[in-house]
Nucleic acid binder design. Structure first.
Lengths: 141, 141
DNA sequence: GTGGTTGCAAACCCTTTGCACGGCA
DNA sequence: TGCCGTGCAAAGGGTTTGCAACCAC
């Protein structure tokens, strides 16, 4: 992903959020870490350059970012939360053996699903978005 | 879902698990409660008829049932775990406003996805199964 | 200036663990 | 009888909360 700190500042102020060093560092960490980090990984990364950040702050900022749709939570069946900086609709590959989660972007698939549900309504339910979870194994493991 | 206690006893012993009242009660609770209950809901339900069951026991049994593929964990972006007694491949409808999760069974969709990924391989990844998460709102809410 | 943010530490809550007792095979 | 499963209570660990100090705007 290509981005600059200035981009992050802009994203924050567009949402009416105060631009603080902590918030910049957290968004930056999520982008840099890439692989759907846990809060712990984010804290660990930020403390390299900013040892004084409080973990409570990180959790609060993550919540704020989610509320303002700057990041998403990744759904898993584990009890630690993971975060995702990509806001465009996309899908995920889950490894059965380890806890790697990779992004899967496939516009052809999106079209297929959109067309399918354009005709096939689900009674009593209004669809907002969908996300395919693909479980399997990475060859490299 | 149609089932009897005898069915549950059979499922347990088929997997080589000892048939205990607690295990029967837990599987029965998941089937009866239906709507992807949390551990807390399961405990609450069972205590109506069996007030002495320990919560530790419930968690241990749930783990055992998952390991032996009698139930599944439902993936969410919340920090409480939820459980699902349906083992056949199926999808889920997630309500954006509340925490209702409903099953969505659609064989036509399964066929569509299977055919799509029969041709379109994902490089470096071997697909085991997929599950579509459909987010939106229920009219009734 | 002032209201939103941060740091800190304690509280929370769901889940896990250890161990002795109990009950299914 | 042997061993797996249960109850109990304590520990664990990720996340949330309260409050005073701070700092973007």
């Amino acid at each position: 992903m290509e981005y600059s700190i200035e981009d992050i500042r802009n994203k924050l102020s567009e949402k009416g959020l105060k631009v603080t060093p902590q918030r910049i560092a957290i968004v930056d960490a999520i982008y840099k870490l890439g692989s759907h980090p846990t809060a712990e990984k984010i804290i660990e990364y930020i403390r390299q350059s900013n040892p004084n950040i409080a973990s409570g702050t990180v959790y609060k900022v993550l919540d704020t970012l989610i509320k303002h749709k700057l990041i998403k939570r990744v759904t898993t069946d584990k009890d630690v939360m993971r975060y995702d900086g990509i806001m465009e609709n996309h899908h995920h590959l889950y490894c059965i053996n380890c806890d790697v989660i990779e992004d899967y972007i496939d516009e052809e698939l999106d079209t297929l699903l959109n067309n399918y549900f354009k005709n096939k309504k689900i009674e009593g339910f209004r669809i907002n978005e969908f996300m395919l979870q693909i479980k399997g194994t990475f060859d490299k493991h």
